[in-house]
Write a protein that binds this DNA or RNA. Structure first.
Length: 443
DNA sequence: ACTTATGATTTCTG
DNA sequence: CAGAAATCATAAGT
């Protein structure tokens, strides 16, 4: 502080009359002479100077420059200067006191966090094209959502680039402006006292201003990202039919667990994996499981609503699984011939406690006119459990007295699950006919 | 253009 | 909260 003052003084003395450096004390008017004529003249003089100073801004540049020079050379200048120093010293305290620490703006923090989370402000994650290629390569077969994903990434990269450019621009402008102001202040410091604190404050103000501009940038960037995101989400929300393969897998599971088509979370996950329903997006896990849940929810209700319509499909998948099951069982039996085949477990996933093939068989019969060539399909139509037993009974001669493999009228309704399971018998003709009840009264 | 299929969402329910 | 049921909105088939 002291040396700064000294510096300013020095600079000043270089400009003004060399001899008149201010002597240590306050630069008040010299005490000699009473409040007489001399004093009045001086007062007048000072008032004049002040007036000039105050009006200097109203004048043209040249004029002002000239006036400034004049003032600089004025004999009273050193005195005034030190007075100003005094005043500043005092007011400076209050300013300093009033200067609150800028609180870390929560809004800005929020934006920063979001930008970081969105990968806009974070480190560059591989070039767009490279990333896209990687994504495409990774996905292999069903890469359609990866393509979308890379599209998204590309757009995000674009946003990021703009953001960074703008940010840099602002930064640069801020620096430029700061140096400019600093120079200005330095220049002015010859005329008026400027403490480093003041400069600091000035710089602080400038920075704050610029950061508020930056905040706007960040905000609009955030908005852009949000829009992009939502548009993407919408695009994803748009119905995309699953791949043939996926529906196949799901249907397989559904029909082979017809008596209890409620896959466990575990099973859902597995199914999701199998179907490569990697519907990216956050929570690949929960998300894909939800997708599977949706599918089963829809399937259950729609199946129940109009069994007839699903008959063909049911037969198809039942037959399919039956075949695989038979093979599996055959293999199993082959492997463990010694073991008593008390628990015929199929290789496929776990627990279908009470497979009641009755559903299918019966409802198939109840199909309106065009009954599906009964016997043959009927045999195949049995769901896994029965098929297995059947196969076993044929192969090994194992037969628990469960029920007739071919014809089991009322499924043991013991299986509570799948409650609404339309009792086949009552279904006689679940309103079939031409205008079958639209499941959805759409719109 | 209209209908059907189908994935998702919303609302309701136990 | 999971699942049923209703509903929405779009894809796909005609």
């Amino acid at each position: 502080m002291m040396e700064e003052q000294a510096r300013i003084m020095q600079a000043l003395s270089g400009v003004t009359l060399a001899g008149h450096s201010v002597q240590g004390g306050m630069g008040l008017p010299p005490p000699h002479g009473h409040e007489g004529t001399d004093g009045d003249g001086r007062k007048q003089d000072i008032g004049d100077i002040l007036h000039q100073i105050m009006t200097i801004t109203d004048q043209s540049l040249d004029e002002a420059q000239a006036k400034k020079h004049g003032l600089n050379c004025h004999r009273m200048k050193p005195a005034l200067f030190s007075v100003l120093c005094e005043i500043k010293e005092k007011t400076g305290l209050s300013i300093r006191g009033a200067q609150e620490q800028d609180p870390p703006d929560p809004q800005l923090m929020r934006l920063d966090n979001m930008l970081l989370a969105e990968g806009v402000s974070g480190p560059e994650k591989g070039g767009g094209s490279a990333a896209a290629a990687a994504a495409a390569a990774a996905a292999g077969g069903g890469a359609e959502n990866s393509i979308e994903h890379s599209d998204y990434r590309a757009k995000l990269t674009q946003i990021r680039q703009i953001y960074h450019t703008e940010l840099e621009k602002y930064e640069q402008a801020c620096n430029e402006f700061t140096t400019h102001v600093m120079n200005l202040l330095r220049e002015q410091s010859r005329t008026r006292p400027i403490s480093p604190k003041e400069i600091e404050r000035m710089v602080g103000i400038i920075h704050r201003k610029f950061s508020s501009i930056q905040m706007q940038l960040k905000q609009s960037t955030c908005e852009a990202v949000m829009i992009l995101r939502s548009r993407f989400l919408d695009a994803r929300r748009k119905r995309r039919n699953f791949s043939k393969q996926a529906t196949e897998i799901l249907n397989e599971y559904f029909y082979s667990h017809l008596s209890n088509p409620y896959p466990s979370e575990e099973a859902k996950e597995e199914l999701a994996k199998k179907c490569s329903i990697t519907v990216s997006q956050v929570s690949d896990q929960a998300g894909s499981r939800r997708v599977v849940s949706n599918w089963f929810g829809n399937k259950r209700i729609r199946y129940k609503k109009n069994i007839g319509k699903f008959q063909e499909e049911a037969n198809l998948y039942a037959a399919k699984t039956a075949v695989t099951a038979t093979h599996a069982v055959a293999a199993a039996i082959h492997n463990s011939q010694a073991n008593s085949p008390t628990t015929p477990n199929s290789g496929s996933s776990a627990s279908f406690s009470l497979p009641n093939s009755g559903d299918m068989f019966m409802s198939m019969q109840s199909l309106n006119g065009a009954s599906y060539q009964g016997a043959q399909v009927g045999a195949n139509v049995q769901s896994q459990g029965d098929t297995i037993r059947h196969a076993i009974s044929q192969t090994v001669g194992y037969n628990d007295g469960l029920r007739h493999p071919m014809y089991s009228p009322h499924s043991l309704n013991g299986n509570g699950g799948w409650h609404g399971a339309p009792t086949p018998s009552s279904v006689t003709s679940p309103n079939e006919g031409p205008g079958s009840v639209h499941s959805d009264t759409s719109n």
